[in-house]
Lab assay of single mutants.
Amino acid sequence: MQFKLIINGKTLKGEITIEAVDAAEAEKFFKQYANDNGIDGEWTYDDATKTFTVTE
């Protein structure tokens, strides 16, 4: 399945899409990606669109 991350950071904005087995695997990848890029904010997930959003 495809999952999307929308980044609304103070210094980094954009979107990335990955293939993952389930939402838990996608969330783990996205949170590591955000951590690696210094993004720390509020997370939301929309199951209907398979979209995670992080907002700083």
Rank of each mutant, 00 (worst) to 15 (best):
D22Q: 14
D22W: 05
T55A: 15
F3L: 03
F52P: 00
G14I: 10
M1L: 10
L12N: 08
D47Q: 13
A34M: 08
G41H: 02
A24F: 09
V21M: 15
Q2V: 14
G38L: 14
I39A: 04
F29W: 14
T17L: 07
K13Y: 09
E56T: 14
W43P: 01
E19P: 05
K10T: 06
I6P: 00
A48D: 06
I39S: 02
N8L: 11
D40K: 09
G9L: 04
T44A: 15
K4W: 10
D22R: 03
E42T: 12
D46M: 08
G41I: 01
D40N: 12
E19C: 06
T44D: 06
D36P: 01
N8E: 15
A26H: 00
G38I: 13
A48L: 13
I16M: 09
F52W: 12
E42K: 15
I7G: 02
D40H: 15
E27V: 14
Y45D: 00
E25G: 15
Q2F: 12
W43D: 00
K13M: 15
E25R: 03
G14M: 12
Q2E: 14
A24M: 08
Q2P: 05
T51I: 08
T55N: 13
K50W: 11
E25F: 04
I7F: 13
I6C: 05
A20Q: 06
D46W: 08
E27Y: 14
D46N: 07
N37Y: 09
D46G: 05
N8A: 09
L5M: 08
A20S: 11
T11A: 07
E15H: 09
N35S: 09
G41K: 01
I16F: 05
E15K: 07
I16H: 04
D47R: 04
K4M: 04
K50T: 13
I6M: 14
L5C: 02
N35R: 13
N8T: 08
M1P: 06
K13D: 04
K50F: 08
T44P: 00
G14H: 14
D46C: 03
L5I: 07
A24T: 06
T51W: 05
N8K: 05
K28P: 03
F3C: 02
T51Y: 13
K50I: 08
K31R: 05
Q32P: 02
A26T: 01
E56D: 04
E15A: 10
F29N: 05
V54P: 00
K28A: 12
A26Y: 00
K13N: 15
T51R: 11
N8Y: 12
Q2N: 15
K10H: 04
F30H: 01
A24V: 09
T55Y: 06
L5N: 01
D47I: 12
W43F: 10
Y33T: 07
N37P: 01
E19R: 02
K4Q: 05
G38R: 14
A26F: 00
A24Y: 13
E42S: 10
G41D: 01
K10A: 10
F52D: 00
M1C: 02
D36F: 14
D47M: 11
F30A: 13
T11K: 04
I39L: 08
Y33I: 03
E19Q: 03
E15S: 12
Q32M: 15
V54H: 01
D36Y: 12
I7T: 10
K13F: 07
A23K: 14
T53I: 04
K31C: 03
T55Q: 10
A26S: 05
A20N: 08
W43I: 15
E25A: 10
K28L: 06
K10M: 03
A24P: 04
W43V: 07
V54D: 00
I39R: 01
K50G: 08
A20C: 03
D22H: 04
N35W: 10
D46E: 08
M1N: 09
A26K: 00
L12D: 09
E25K: 05
Y45K: 02
G9I: 10
A24C: 03
T44S: 08
G14C: 02
F29K: 15
Q32T: 07
V21C: 04
N35F: 13
A34N: 09
A23G: 15
A34L: 07
T17A: 11
L12T: 15
T11I: 06
D36G: 14
A48V: 11
E15Q: 05
G14F: 12
T55L: 12
E15W: 13
E42G: 12
D40R: 07
K10D: 04
T11C: 04
V54G: 00
A20E: 11
E56L: 08
I39D: 01
K31G: 03
E25P: 03
V21K: 15
T53Q: 12
A48P: 09
A23L: 15
I16G: 02
I39V: 07
K50M: 02
Q32W: 14
Q32S: 06
K50N: 11
T51C: 03
F52G: 00
I18E: 03
K31T: 04
K4A: 08
Y33S: 04
V21H: 11
A24K: 11
Y45S: 01
N37A: 13
D36I: 11
W43E: 00
T51A: 11
D46I: 06
E56G: 13
I6S: 07
E42W: 15
I18P: 00
M1Q: 12
G14E: 11
I16C: 02
I6N: 09
K28I: 07
W43K: 00
N8C: 07
Q2L: 13
A20L: 10
N35V: 10
E27L: 06
I7L: 12
G9F: 12
G14V: 09
K31A: 07
K4E: 04
T11D: 05
K10L: 04
M1T: 08
E56H: 15
V54I: 06
A26R: 00
G9D: 06
D46V: 06
T55S: 11
A34G: 15
A26P: 01
Y45V: 04
K50Y: 10
D40V: 04
E19L: 11
D47N: 15
K13Q: 04
D22T: 04
V21R: 06
Q32Y: 11
F30S: 04
K4R: 09
K10I: 08
M1G: 11
N37D: 03
I16Q: 04
A24W: 14
N37F: 08
I39E: 02
D22A: 03
A24R: 02
I18F: 12
K4N: 13
F29G: 06
G41R: 01
V54F: 05
E42L: 07
I16W: 04
D22V: 04
T55D: 05
E25D: 14
K31W: 06
M1K: 08
A34K: 02
K28G: 07
A26M: 01
K31L: 04
I18S: 05
E19G: 02
T55K: 15
D36E: 10
K10V: 07
E25N: 15
F29P: 01
T11V: 09
K31N: 10
V21W: 07
E56C: 05
N8D: 09
L5G: 02
G9H: 03
K28V: 04
E19Y: 03
I18M: 05
K31E: 05
T53G: 04
A26V: 04
K13L: 09
I6Q: 10
A23D: 13
L12H: 11
D40Q: 11
K28M: 07
V54C: 03
N8S: 14
A24L: 09
T51P: 00
E56V: 05
T17N: 07
D36H: 14
T11R: 04
T17E: 14
T44I: 13
Q32L: 08
A48R: 02
A48Y: 05
I7S: 03
W43G: 00
A48E: 10
L12I: 11
D47W: 05
Y45R: 03
Y33K: 05
T55V: 06
F29C: 02
T44M: 14
D36R: 13
I18H: 09
Q32A: 15
T11G: 14
Q32V: 11
K50R: 08
F3P: 00
D46A: 09
I7R: 02
I18W: 10
G41A: 03
G38K: 15
I39G: 01
